[in-house]
Simulated scan of single mutants.
Amino acid sequence: MNGFSLNNLSLFDNLTNKEIKIVSDFLIEKNYSNEEKIFIKGKARTKLVIIKDGLVKLNTDIADHQETIAMFRSGDFLGEMAFLEKNSLHQHTLIVASPNLTTLELSIYHWFTIQKKYPEIAQKIYHNIAINLKKRLDHSNNKLVTLFAGGKIIALYDNMNEISKHLTEIILKVIPVKYALFCTVSSINSKASVQYALGYKINIGANFDLLNDTFLAKIIENKKTKIFNKSDWSKEHLKLPYISNSLLITPINLGKKTLGLIILGDKLSGRDFSANNQILLDALATQIAPAIEEHRLNALQSSSEDLKRVYIDPFYRPEGDHPLGGNS
């Protein structure tokens, strides 16, 4: 299947093979289809779910829509709060995010049996659950801190280069990488303009011609974040100035328009980019898109006023700007 083994699960760290075998006798294998709901917000917590094969997404309500806050894959487990809080309710909805999903599930009823008959095993599992919850909380906090800081930066700066620089620095605190680019995109001249660069031999103000750079053009056309690894590159791709061993590219979309691109290359840890990295950048891109559009419109208005003043009407003054504060 995918090399899945109970012995490799963090849930069973420090359990002997014999103890893992005891717990496995209580697990029930289940199969789900794409978009099927495993947990539903507001419903009672009744089981712990171990993902054997496939993907799931954890959704939560934000304003008037649902947003994915995390993705989980083979080897991850969820629903452990059922064992920590009696009669508690799910706070989020868990949905299948792959064509098929196979799980191993441990009901509350069977957990109580393990607690009663094998208290030492239960104690070890409780310890592993606590460690996992801490890691998951760190991820959630990373996302919240990034979004909060991103909003603050947008409010503080008017210059696009400054906004780009500081937003990228925030991203790098959560996803440390060797290479990063922050670009704005113009549909008028079909170019992506570099506002900030890290690690690459690319100057701020440099442009990528989207008519020739079909790689970035495809990202903009699809309007979706993509993760690429070394095996995805063709000989033509290797000539591109921003190519690295692994790449995460997020378009900054507002409606049908793509306003910019966030490009990250090669995590310092050496690991591949994860689905949770993708979710974080998607959320940040959604937040900053209106600010980039506002900055673009302000720049256009300023250019228009300069044009009127210098080339069309030497006596032109922007609305509200009258000599001696008088009214015309």
Rank of each mutant, 00 (worst) to 15 (best):
H139Y: 11
K124H: 08
S164H: 08
L137G: 00
E162A: 10
I95E: 04
K124Q: 12
S88N: 10
L48R: 02
G151D: 09
T168C: 09
L101P: 07
N159T: 11
V56L: 08
W111C: 04
T93M: 06
I131K: 00
H65F: 14
F148C: 06
L89R: 11
Q115E: 15
T60N: 09
T146Y: 04
I108F: 08
I154T: 12
T103C: 08
K152H: 10
L133F: 01
G150P: 05
H127K: 15
N141D: 05
D138P: 01
T103Q: 08
F112E: 11
I69W: 11
F72C: 02
Y118Q: 05
I121F: 03
T103V: 10
A70H: 05
N100T: 12
H110A: 12
M71R: 09
L89C: 07
L144Y: 13
H127Q: 15
S98Q: 12
L78S: 08
K86A: 15
K165P: 04
D61N: 15
Y118V: 02
D138V: 09
L144A: 11
L156M: 10
L94Q: 10
G79H: 05
L147M: 14
W111K: 07
A63E: 15
E85L: 12
T168P: 05
K116Q: 11
L55I: 13
A70E: 14
L84D: 02
I121E: 01
A149Y: 14
T60C: 08
G150W: 02
G54W: 04
K86H: 13
L133V: 03
H166W: 13
L84H: 03
V96R: 04
L144E: 04
M81K: 07
N142M: 05
I154Y: 02
N59I: 10
S107W: 08
F72P: 00
K152L: 15
G150K: 04
I50D: 00
K47Q: 12
K143Y: 00
E85P: 11
L89H: 11
Y126P: 03
S88R: 04
I51A: 00
T113A: 09
R136Q: 15
P99Q: 07
K124V: 11
K165Q: 11
D53T: 03
Y126M: 06
K117Y: 13
K57W: 03
N142W: 02
R136W: 01
I95A: 02
Y126G: 00
Y126R: 11
L104K: 15
L48Q: 01
H92W: 05
V145T: 09
Y126S: 06
P119T: 09
I131T: 01
S140M: 04
H166A: 07
E162Y: 06
S98N: 09
N59V: 10
V49R: 00
A122K: 05
R136S: 01
A149F: 08
T68M: 08
N132M: 02
I51T: 14
L167S: 11
V56D: 00
A97E: 06
H127W: 02
K86Q: 14
I51F: 00
E162T: 12
V96W: 04
Q123P: 03
N100S: 14
P99N: 09
G79T: 08
L144I: 13
G75M: 04
A155K: 13
